[in-house]
Design a protein around this nucleic acid. Structure first.
Lengths: 193, 193
DNA sequence: CGATCGCGAGAACGCTCGTTCTCGCCACAG
DNA sequence: CTGTGGCGAGAACGAGCGTTCTCGCGATCG
């Protein structure tokens, strides 16, 4: 019988992995540091995640769902469809202002590990696809004309580019201004037929 | 007297560093691999660049100027101001289609090395600032109203977000479609007053 | 009550990598 | 012709890291 139950240990390990990997990148954080930050012994870490790669992928998958959940909870609260789209950028602005903000965890992992680890590539692609689906759903509700899936998709793709660009630019410049600039652009795109 | 003159050696080293660092990331490429790819002995590499960090920064700085030069040569050839702005996205589309394309070298380096190396952070910030200045110059020429610097800057910031987002998205999805989507959005933004 | 199993703590192993050192060689100065 | 200084090739060193192994302890089961 373990000192703590497997679920608690798994959560503790992923918590430590998330803050360390996100803050400093994957390659510069050793398993030993995750052990000391989480309090989970190395042996147990390797029982839960057979290799560091598995831990990295689990970190990305968990972050995918929690990130999108946090965003959608915020945006879905707005009553009108247009407001829900614009709320995405309000949410971004708050995220950018957090002191731990360091850009998109998925883009960072992709740039760092690149084509060398297919599991990471897949997790990153899945995250971007899920985000795009969410934006398309929001876009579809804005005007009757965009109930047409293709039209909604076209807008969603443009909104996704603005979001992606805002995240990256905010990370590099260290300001949250890109969220407001992206929102202004989104407003312009929304007003187009 | 050296086997090859310092300039040639420096160029060979930077050529090797550029293709290897860009293709696989900074941390997974060792100095020994740069030696064998460039033919420059390790000792000479360390004379030219006292540490790997120096080589990384020199790689980013050289790529900054050549990237912007290539883009501006392409876009500046267009006769009308609006066409110059839209040409940026044509150029992106060609870049995305190259087999070696792997996203923005600066974003990748930033995500990988993060706050740990101030020189890299500075090089990345300088690159983004230079690109923004170039876009602002293009924007200023589009309409008389945007001769006003603040208005041109506002448009340039939005175009920069679209570009950044397109580069990242193209890298992850492996298609050059984001260039066309970004261009469509840019067209819409240009048509706004 | 004694044997056994699973656990935590951390040492150990094998590998990689940034950086430096050694050594033999060639070109040139005196 | 001989001494010297810089060069290339590559060994060497020291640190870090992913992963596994050892050991001692505490609980569990017959």
């Amino acid at each position: 019988m373990a000192t703590v139950d497997p679920d608690t240990a798994r959560t503790a390990a992923l918590d430590a992995a998330e803050s360390l990997f996100y803050a400093r990148g994957v390659q510069s954080v050793g398993m030993d540091e995750i052990r000391s930050a989480s309090g989970i012994p190395l042996k147990r870490l390797y029982q839960l995640f057979p290799s560091k790669t598995d831990l990295v992928e689990a970190y990305l998958r968990r972050r995918d769902t929690s990130w999108l959940l946090s965003l959608s909870r915020y945006a879905d609260a707005r009553p009108d469809p247009r407001g829900r789209v614009l709320a995405v950028f309000d949410w971004l602005e708050g995220w950018f202002a957090e002191p731990e903000f360091r850009g998109c965890a998925f883009v960072n992992a992709f740039g760092e590990l690149g084509a060398s680890s297919p599991g990471v590539v897949e997790a990153v692609a899945d995250h971007k696809a899920a985000f795009h689906r969410y934006l398309a759903e929001l876009a579809r509700q804005t005007t009757p004309a965009r109930a047409d899936a293709a039209r909604a998709d076209r807008l969603a793709a443009q909104l996704a580019l603005l979001t992606e660009g805002a995240i990256t630019t905010a990370a590099i410049t260290g300001t949250s201004e890109p969220a407001r600039q992206a929102q202004a652009a989104a407003r312009a795109l929304l007003s187009m037929p």
